[in-house]
Amino acid sequence: MKVEREDLGRNLSDMKRSGYTYLVKITAVDYSDHLEAIYILRNMDERKDVSVEVKLAPTDLWLDTVISQFPAADWYERELQEMFGILIKGRKADRLLLEKWDGREYPLRRSFEWGKDYERM
């Protein structure tokens, strides 16, 4: 299911009301010309999964936080911020979770050069 970024919070709330209460995973893919954030939700009673995809332009990377609807999103959102540089709005400033990078380079972006000696924090 593809949704617009602005409608993400409302869509996920609707999904939650219709029984999709379990957040399996939030992840993202860098397709060079655009990025895609993927939210995989599960209906625990019907044993059904659905994925919600949000398209993002590389120059304008932000998403609203869904932590109030899905507490499980917490660390996934921090991971997205660190690995892809997607700013998650509505969160307080976080300590870096996984990587101790200086915050200017994002390892899972395609532009990240393999083997280059990036500066550590």
């Binding site: 399996v24 995973k25 992840t27 993202a28 893919v29 860098d30 993927i38 995989i40 660390w75 899972l108």
Partner: peptide
């Protein structure tokens, strides 16, 4: 539940995302 979300590219994975069960259990 370990889950892999893979975007399969030519000869190599274009992107492999791993849902680690302990990552979220530890959270």
């Amino acid at each position: 539940e370990e889950l892999m979300y893979m975007v399969a590219g030519d000869q190599k994975p274009y992107r492999l995302s791993i849902r680690s069960p302990v990552f979220i259990n530890l959270h």
